[in-house]
Protein backbone atom coordinates (compact mmCIF):
# COMPACT_ATOMS: atom_id res chain seq x y z
CA UNK A 1 0.00 0.00 0.00
CA UNK A 2 1.35 3.36 -0.88
CA UNK A 3 0.34 6.53 0.84
CA UNK A 4 0.08 9.74 -1.05
CA UNK A 5 0.49 12.92 0.97
CA UNK A 6 -1.67 15.85 0.26
CA UNK A 7 0.09 19.12 -0.57
CA UNK A 8 -0.89 20.52 2.86
CA UNK A 9 0.51 17.43 4.60
CA UNK A 10 3.73 17.63 2.59
CA UNK A 11 4.06 21.30 3.46
CA UNK A 12 3.38 20.55 7.10
CA UNK A 13 6.00 17.75 7.14
CA UNK A 14 8.51 20.01 5.40
CA UNK A 15 7.77 22.75 7.88
CA UNK A 16 8.31 20.34 10.82
CA UNK A 17 11.58 19.17 9.28
CA UNK A 18 12.67 22.77 8.77
CA UNK A 19 11.79 23.59 12.37
CA UNK A 20 13.77 20.56 13.59
CA UNK A 21 16.72 21.58 11.42
CA UNK A 22 16.52 25.15 12.70
CA UNK A 23 16.31 23.95 16.28
CA UNK A 24 19.31 21.68 15.67
CA UNK A 25 21.26 24.60 14.24
CA UNK A 26 20.37 26.78 17.22
CA UNK A 27 21.37 24.05 19.67
CA UNK A 28 24.62 23.47 17.80
CA UNK A 29 25.39 27.16 17.81
CA UNK A 30 24.55 27.37 21.52
CA UNK A 31 26.85 24.44 22.27
CA UNK A 32 29.66 26.00 20.25
CA UNK A 33 29.15 29.27 22.11
CA UNK A 34 29.21 27.55 25.50
CA UNK A 35 32.37 25.60 24.67
CA UNK A 36 34.04 28.72 23.26
CA UNK A 37 33.06 30.65 26.38
CA UNK A 38 34.47 28.00 28.73
CA UNK A 39 37.70 27.80 26.75
CA UNK A 40 38.19 31.45 25.95
CA UNK A 41 36.91 33.23 29.04
CA UNK A 42 40.02 32.55 31.18
CA UNK A 43 42.16 33.87 28.33
CA UNK A 44 39.92 36.93 27.99
CA UNK A 45 40.05 37.47 31.76
CA UNK A 46 43.85 37.31 31.68
CA UNK A 47 44.07 39.87 28.88
CA UNK A 48 41.44 42.10 30.52
CA UNK A 49 43.22 42.15 33.87
CA UNK A 50 46.54 42.78 32.19
CA UNK A 51 45.36 45.89 30.38
CA UNK A 52 42.80 47.58 32.62
CA UNK A 53 43.49 49.50 35.85
CA UNK A 54 43.68 47.13 38.82
CA UNK A 55 40.89 48.75 40.84
CA UNK A 56 38.31 47.56 38.28
CA UNK A 57 39.44 43.95 38.47
CA UNK A 58 38.64 43.42 42.13
CA UNK A 59 35.15 44.90 42.13
CA UNK A 60 31.83 43.13 42.29
CA UNK A 61 30.23 42.67 39.84
CA UNK A 62 33.49 42.36 37.92
CA UNK A 63 34.13 44.58 34.92
CA UNK A 64 33.76 42.38 31.88
CA UNK A 65 34.50 45.15 29.41
CA UNK A 66 37.69 47.21 29.84
CA UNK A 67 36.97 50.37 31.81
CA UNK A 68 40.15 52.02 30.69
CA UNK A 69 43.57 51.06 29.51
CA UNK A 70 46.66 50.91 31.65
CA UNK A 71 49.99 49.56 30.43
CA UNK A 72 51.80 49.86 33.76
CA UNK A 73 51.64 46.11 34.34
CA UNK A 74 53.56 45.52 31.13
CA UNK A 75 55.95 48.36 31.94
CA UNK A 76 56.64 46.89 35.39
CA UNK A 77 57.09 43.44 33.89
CA UNK A 78 59.64 44.61 31.32
CA UNK A 79 61.42 46.85 33.85
CA UNK A 80 61.64 44.33 36.70
CA UNK A 81 62.11 41.06 34.85
CA UNK A 82 64.32 40.04 31.91
CA UNK A 83 61.29 38.74 30.04
CA UNK A 84 62.82 39.24 26.59
CA UNK A 85 65.76 37.05 27.58
CA UNK A 86 63.41 34.42 28.97
CA UNK A 87 61.43 34.34 25.74
CA UNK A 88 64.59 34.09 23.67
CA UNK A 89 65.83 31.22 25.81
CA UNK A 90 62.48 29.47 25.33
CA UNK A 91 62.68 30.09 21.59
CA UNK A 92 66.21 28.71 21.48
CA UNK A 93 65.23 25.55 23.35
CA UNK A 94 61.99 25.06 21.40
CA UNK A 95 63.75 25.57 18.06
CA UNK A 96 66.30 22.88 18.90
CA UNK A 97 63.51 20.58 20.04
CA UNK A 98 61.65 21.06 16.74
CA UNK A 99 64.76 20.45 14.64
CA UNK A 100 65.95 17.42 16.62
CA UNK A 101 62.46 15.96 16.75
CA UNK A 102 62.05 16.23 12.99
CA UNK A 103 65.46 14.68 12.36
CA UNK A 104 64.65 11.70 14.58
CA UNK A 105 60.98 11.30 13.86
CA UNK A 106 61.02 11.30 10.05
CA UNK A 107 63.06 8.10 9.58
CA UNK A 108 61.44 6.51 12.64
CA UNK A 109 57.93 7.10 11.33
CA UNK A 110 58.92 5.88 7.88
CA UNK A 111 60.40 2.71 9.34
CA UNK A 112 57.23 2.05 11.30
CA UNK A 113 54.93 2.93 8.43
CA UNK A 114 56.62 1.57 5.32
CA UNK A 115 59.21 -1.03 6.23
CA UNK A 116 58.36 -4.57 7.23
CA UNK A 117 60.63 -5.88 9.93
CA UNK A 118 60.44 -8.09 13.00
CA UNK A 119 59.49 -6.26 16.18
CA UNK A 120 57.98 -3.29 14.37
CA UNK A 121 54.68 -3.41 16.25
CA UNK A 122 56.44 -4.11 19.53
CA UNK A 123 58.67 -1.05 19.13
CA UNK A 124 55.65 1.07 18.24
CA UNK A 125 53.92 -0.02 21.43
CA UNK A 126 57.08 0.50 23.43
CA UNK A 127 57.25 4.08 22.17
CA UNK A 128 53.73 4.63 23.44
CA UNK A 129 54.61 2.99 26.75
CA UNK A 130 57.25 5.64 27.40
CA UNK A 131 54.45 8.20 27.41
CA UNK A 132 52.63 6.46 30.24
CA UNK A 133 55.32 7.17 32.83
CA UNK A 134 54.55 10.35 34.84
CA UNK A 135 57.32 12.94 34.68
CA UNK A 136 57.46 13.27 38.46
CA UNK A 137 58.58 9.64 38.68
CA UNK A 138 61.63 10.09 36.51
CA UNK A 139 62.74 13.61 37.34
CA UNK A 140 65.14 12.52 40.11
CA UNK A 141 66.83 9.80 38.00
CA UNK A 142 67.09 12.27 35.11
CA UNK A 143 68.78 14.77 37.41
CA UNK A 144 71.24 12.09 38.57
CA UNK A 145 72.06 11.28 34.95
CA UNK A 146 72.46 14.91 33.94
CA UNK A 147 74.70 15.56 36.92
CA UNK A 148 76.88 12.57 36.07
CA UNK A 149 77.48 13.98 32.60
CA UNK A 150 77.75 17.59 33.72
CA UNK A 151 74.70 18.59 31.73
CA UNK A 152 72.82 20.58 34.35
CA UNK A 153 72.42 24.30 33.62
CA UNK A 154 72.77 23.55 29.92
CA UNK A 155 69.93 24.63 27.64
CA UNK A 156 71.02 22.52 24.70
CA UNK A 157 70.94 19.36 26.78
CA UNK A 158 67.59 20.43 28.21
CA UNK A 159 66.32 20.75 24.63
CA UNK A 160 67.55 17.24 23.84
CA UNK A 161 65.67 15.95 26.88
CA UNK A 162 62.50 17.72 25.73
CA UNK A 163 62.99 16.17 22.30
CA UNK A 164 63.36 12.73 23.87
CA UNK A 165 59.99 13.16 25.56
CA UNK A 166 58.16 14.36 22.49
CA UNK A 167 59.66 11.97 19.92
CA UNK A 168 57.39 8.96 20.70
CA UNK A 169 54.16 10.93 20.30
CA UNK A 170 55.42 12.73 17.21
CA UNK A 171 56.53 9.44 15.68
CA UNK A 172 52.97 8.17 15.92
CA UNK A 173 51.54 11.39 14.50
CA UNK A 174 53.89 11.28 11.54
CA UNK A 175 53.42 7.53 11.08
CA UNK A 176 49.68 8.17 10.65
CA UNK A 177 50.54 10.82 8.09
CA UNK A 178 52.89 8.45 6.21
CA UNK A 179 50.27 5.68 6.34
CA UNK A 180 47.92 7.95 4.43
CA UNK A 181 50.26 8.19 1.44
CA UNK A 182 48.95 5.69 -1.14
CA UNK A 183 51.12 2.60 -1.27
CA UNK A 184 51.19 2.75 -5.05
CA UNK A 185 53.19 5.97 -4.99
CA UNK A 186 55.83 4.52 -2.74
CA UNK A 187 55.96 1.30 -4.71
CA UNK A 188 56.28 3.22 -7.96
CA UNK A 189 59.23 5.15 -6.55
CA UNK A 190 60.90 1.95 -5.45
CA UNK A 191 60.22 0.31 -8.83
CA UNK A 192 61.78 3.34 -10.53
CA UNK A 193 64.97 2.66 -8.66
CA UNK A 194 64.72 4.87 -5.59
CA UNK A 195 66.09 3.45 -2.39
CA UNK A 196 64.14 4.03 0.81
CA UNK A 197 65.97 7.25 1.75
CA UNK A 198 65.30 8.68 -1.68
CA UNK A 199 61.68 7.56 -1.53
CA UNK A 200 61.31 9.16 1.87
CA UNK A 201 62.83 12.52 0.99
CA UNK A 202 61.70 12.85 -2.63
CA UNK A 203 58.26 11.33 -2.49
CA UNK A 204 56.82 10.81 0.97
CA UNK A 205 57.93 13.97 2.75
CA UNK A 206 56.67 16.40 0.10
CA UNK A 207 53.28 14.72 0.33
CA UNK A 208 53.11 14.82 4.12
CA UNK A 209 54.09 18.37 4.93
CA UNK A 210 50.96 18.93 7.04
CA UNK A 211 52.15 16.03 9.21
CA UNK A 212 55.58 17.60 9.55
CA UNK A 213 53.97 20.88 10.55
CA UNK A 214 51.80 19.13 13.13
CA UNK A 215 54.85 17.42 14.60
CA UNK A 216 56.69 20.75 14.73
CA UNK A 217 53.77 22.35 16.55
CA UNK A 218 53.51 19.55 19.09
CA UNK A 219 57.26 19.65 19.75
CA UNK A 220 57.34 23.45 19.97
CA UNK A 221 54.42 23.73 22.37
CA UNK A 222 55.64 20.90 24.59
CA UNK A 223 59.01 22.54 25.00
CA UNK A 224 57.57 26.04 25.37
CA UNK A 225 55.33 25.03 28.25
CA UNK A 226 57.50 22.42 29.97
CA UNK A 227 58.31 23.31 33.57
CA UNK A 228 59.04 20.25 35.74
CA UNK A 229 62.30 19.13 34.13
CA UNK A 230 63.41 22.66 33.33
CA UNK A 231 63.11 23.66 36.98
CA UNK A 232 65.04 20.60 38.12
CA UNK A 233 67.84 20.93 35.57
CA UNK A 234 68.26 24.70 35.27
CA UNK A 235 69.08 26.60 38.45
CA UNK A 236 71.07 29.56 37.09
CA UNK A 237 68.67 32.46 36.73
CA UNK A 238 70.61 33.67 33.68
CA UNK A 239 69.45 30.56 31.82
CA UNK A 240 65.77 30.72 32.73
CA UNK A 241 63.29 29.88 30.02
CA UNK A 242 59.90 31.60 29.91
CA UNK A 243 58.12 29.01 32.04
CA UNK A 244 60.81 29.22 34.75
CA UNK A 245 60.85 33.00 34.62
CA UNK A 246 57.10 33.27 34.93
CA UNK A 247 57.16 31.07 38.02
CA UNK A 248 59.43 33.58 39.74
CA UNK A 249 56.50 36.01 39.76
CA UNK A 250 54.58 33.69 42.06
CA UNK A 251 56.18 34.40 45.41
CA UNK A 252 55.26 33.76 49.00
CA UNK A 253 52.46 36.12 50.13
CA UNK A 254 53.33 38.61 47.42
CA UNK A 255 52.27 37.67 43.92
CA UNK A 256 51.76 40.78 41.75
CA UNK A 257 48.49 39.56 40.29
CA UNK A 258 48.14 41.92 37.35
CA UNK A 259 51.82 41.82 36.40
CA UNK A 260 51.46 38.05 36.34
CA UNK A 261 48.52 38.44 33.96
CA UNK A 262 50.64 40.72 31.75
CA UNK A 263 53.40 38.12 31.83
CA UNK A 264 50.90 35.43 30.82
CA UNK A 265 49.78 37.52 27.86
CA UNK A 266 53.38 38.22 26.82
CA UNK A 267 54.36 34.57 27.17
CA UNK A 268 51.41 33.57 24.95
CA UNK A 269 52.11 35.94 22.09
CA UNK A 270 54.89 34.02 20.36
CA UNK A 271 53.12 30.62 20.40
CA UNK A 272 49.96 32.29 19.12
CA UNK A 273 51.86 33.89 16.24
CA UNK A 274 53.54 30.57 15.53
CA UNK A 275 50.18 28.85 15.60
CA UNK A 276 48.53 31.44 13.36
CA UNK A 277 51.31 31.07 10.83
CA UNK A 278 50.85 27.34 10.46
CA UNK A 279 47.36 26.63 11.78
CA UNK A 280 45.85 25.77 8.41
CA UNK A 281 48.14 22.71 8.21
CA UNK A 282 47.60 21.43 11.70
CA UNK A 283 44.20 19.81 11.43
CA UNK A 284 45.20 18.04 8.25
CA UNK A 285 48.35 16.80 9.93
CA UNK A 286 46.76 15.60 13.11
CA UNK A 287 43.91 13.84 11.33
CA UNK A 288 46.00 12.38 8.52
CA UNK A 289 45.33 8.69 8.25
CA UNK A 290 42.33 8.86 10.56
CA UNK A 291 40.11 7.72 7.69
CA UNK A 292 41.50 5.51 5.00
CA UNK A 293 39.76 5.12 1.68
Amino acid sequence: MSATLLPEQRASARSAADRAAALGAVLRAALILIVCFVVLFPVYWMVLNAIQPGEFSLTWPPALIPRGLEWSNFARLFEDKPIVEWLLMSTYVAAIVVVVTLIVVVPAAYALSRLRWRGRNLLGLFLLFTQIMPGAMIVAPELTLFRAFGWTDNLTMLALLHAAFVVPLCTWILKASFDAVPGEIVEAALVDGCNHWQTLFSVVLPLTRPGLVAVSVVAFFFSWNEYLFSSALITRSGLYTGSLGLATLITQLDTPLFVLMAAGVTFSVLPILFYLAIQRHILRGLTAGAVKG
Binding site: D192, S202, L207
Partner: peptide, 20 residues
Protein backbone atom coordinates in the same frame (compact mmCIF):
# COMPACT_ATOMS: atom_id res chain seq x y z
CA UNK B 1 44.42 8.45 -9.83
CA UNK B 2 47.91 8.32 -8.40
CA UNK B 3 50.93 10.49 -8.92
CA UNK B 4 53.89 8.55 -10.24
CA UNK B 5 57.39 9.91 -9.75
CA UNK B 6 59.45 10.09 -12.92
CA UNK B 7 62.79 9.79 -11.26
CA UNK B 8 64.28 9.69 -7.83
CA UNK B 9 65.51 13.21 -8.10
CA UNK B 10 62.07 14.45 -8.98
CA UNK B 11 60.03 16.28 -6.42
CA UNK B 12 56.48 15.35 -7.41
CA UNK B 13 54.78 17.30 -4.76
CA UNK B 14 56.15 20.69 -5.61
CA UNK B 15 52.71 21.74 -6.70
CA UNK B 16 51.35 21.06 -3.25
CA UNK B 17 54.17 22.74 -1.44
CA UNK B 18 52.56 24.29 1.60
CA UNK B 19 55.38 25.75 3.59
CA UNK B 20 56.40 29.34 3.19
Amino acid sequence: MTTKPRSCSASPANSISLMK
